[in-house]
Amino acid sequence: MPAYIARRFMLMLLTLFGMSVLIFVLLRLMPGNVADILFDASGFIDPAERARIEEELGLDQPVVTQYVQWIGALLRGDLGFSYVSERPAIEEILPRIPVTAQLAAWSLLFSVVLGVPLGVISAVRQNTGLDYALRLVSLSGLSLPSFWLGLLILMAFVQWFGFIPIYTETPATPWDGFLIYALPALAVGFRSSALIMRLTRSSMLEVLRQDFIRTARAKGATEQTMNYRHALRNAVLPVVTIIGIEAAFLIGGLIVTETVFNIPGLARFLVEAILWRDYPIVQNLVMLIAVVVVAVNFLVDMLYAVLDPRIRYAD
C-alpha cells in the first residue's frame, strides 16, 4: 500500500511537470508574444516601452529560464499579474475559488445522488421498460449541452416566475447560496449524472455476470442482498474512479454554465482571460485546473485502494 501511494504520487508529479511544459509551450506557440498583444490592443507601439514590458515579463530571457522563473513563482504562490484588471492575479483568483467550489460541489452531489441509484435500478431491471426509459433519459442527458440546458432552465423561470435567477450579488446565507447555485448545478449535474448512470449501469451489469453472484444465489440470498450487498459493493469501485473523470467533465460544464448564469467563478474568469488575451492569467489558471484535476484523480485512486481489499492488502 505505501509503495502504491508513492508510485501514484510520483506519477502525479510527473504528469504535472508534463502539463506545465505543455501549457508553457502552447501559450508560446501563439503568434506574437504578450507584449505584442498588449500593444495590439492599444494600437500604439513605442519600441522602448515595448522592450521595458518584455523585460518586465522576462520575455527577453531564454525560454528555459522563463519556464524556470514561472514554475518558481508558482511554487511561491505567485500567480502573476493581470494586465486587464492591473491587479495581482491572486486577488482576482482567491475570491472566485469558493464560488466555483460551491457550484462544483452541488453539481457533483446532484450527479452522484441521481446517477448512482438510477444506474443500479437500470441494471437490476435490465431490458425492462424502466431500463429503456432510464437509458433514453441518460442518453438525452449526454446529448444536451449544459449551456443550452442552462438557457432552457432560465427560460422556464421567466415563463413561470417572471424573473431570471442569475447571480447578482454574493449570497449571504447558505440557503441563498443553494438557491443561487441549485439551477446552474442542475444544468451541469444533469449531464454528469447521465454519465455516472451509464457507467454505474454497465459496471453493475458486469458484476452481476460474475461467478460470485451465482454463489450468492446458490446460498439462498435474496434479490436485495445480491444486488446491494454483493453486486453494488463491487460495482461502485469503478464508479468511484469515474468521479476522477467526472472532475474533468464538471469543469467543462462549469465553464459554459458560469457564463450562462453570470456566475463570477474561476471557470468564467478563464474564458474572460482568454478572450481578453490576458495570457499570464490563462497560463496560471489552466495550470491550477490541471493541479485540481490531477489531485482529484490521485485522491480517487487512494479512495479506490481503501475500498478495494485487493489493493489495500497488496504489498
Binding site: D211, F212, R214, T215, H230, L237, L307, D308, R310
Partner: peptide, 12 residues
C-alpha cells in the same frame, strides 16, 4: 463451484 477465486466475492 469450480473456480473458488471467482466464486467468492472479492470485497467481502
Amino acid at each position: 463451484f469450480q473456480e473458488p477465486m471467482t466464486s467468492l466475492n472479492p470485497v467481502l
